[in-house]
Design a protein around this nucleic acid. Structure first.
Lengths: 155, 155
DNA sequence: TATTGTTATACTCTATAACTATA
DNA sequence: TATAGTTATAGAGTATAACAATA
């Protein structure tokens, strides 16, 4: 008798056997990514940024003056969808499109002073998020995990 | 002089410095998950299944007769969105909603004979996909990676 | 001719509120 | 009163095709 009659109704749901799926790398990657993003999305609400927008500010911050194609390609975002993201970040007053000198087709992206301030706060929030993940992973977990993930992601 | 004058035009794009982002666990998880799914999505095209639909067939296959809430909860899919997925799988003739015996509100899900055949083929395609990931990860890569991912995903 | 940025568009995924029938 | 399933709907995110300006 596994069920306790006194509290059996607390959970009517049968727990499916998930053993095989939990052994699938892609499924585990998906669930881990969703769990990590759930935490990050919540953490970045304070600065009104979604994870993808934070990553765009990150790349611009470390590479000011690059054009949209260079940034979107590096992030794995299609140019066409990147336009909307740049529009939104510009509306928020966080970045500006400046006329590029060498190629008049392209726009050099830069953070505004407000963009720098918001990004600095976002980076702190992200660092706290990262610390929570590292605590979950345990000793050396991050150092083991990162190279494995990039072996899958690179190329 | 890094650029070679004879082939400099092959890549006009400057490569952004991505070092900091590549050290972020969440970003690495995202890129790895997208890369893995790109392969799986392509692999499952033959059987006209998306990864999430394959995971549903997987759970039903190993747990026939469970209701929609039990399966969707285990997969982290909201009940409300799960309805459309069950509709689509039923339209494809892969599963059936059967009247549950104990609770007339719920539907017991089962694979049809066609569903079993399609799932068996999908599982083979998935096994080949998994082998490609394992090859990328190298020796013991999978055994190191899986527990780390579930440490992040569980709870 | 090729590339940068853009618009338009469509499809998938995800999230919330409210309803119905049963429990 | 709570739960299983459903509907409706809105917002992200993602994909393709086509265009103007510039290279």
């Amino acid at each position: 008798m596994i069920e306790n009659k006194h509290c059996a109704d607390l959970t009517q749901l049968e727990r499916p056997n998930m053993d095989a799926l939990r052994g699938a790398i892609g499924y585990a990657l998906r669930r881990a990514q969703l769990s990590a993003f759930e935490d990050l999305i919540h953490a970045l609400e304070e600065v009104d940024l979604r994870p993808a927008y934070f990553s765009v500010l990150y790349v611009i911050s470390e590479n000011p003056g690059l054009n949209q194609s260079e940034i979107s390609t590096a992030l794995g975002i299609q140019r066409t969808n990147f336009v909307t993201m740049v529009d939104n970040l510009e509306k928020q007053g966080l970045i500006v499109r400046q006329p590029a000198k060498r190629d008049r087709r392209s726009h050099a992206l830069h953070l505004t002073p407000k963009g720098i301030a918001v990004f600095n706060r976002a980076r702190d929030l992200h660092t706290e998020h990262e610390a929570r993940l590292i605590e979950k992973l345990g000793p050396n977990g991050r150092e083991q995990l990162l190279p494995l993930l990039w072996r899958i992601a690179d190329e």
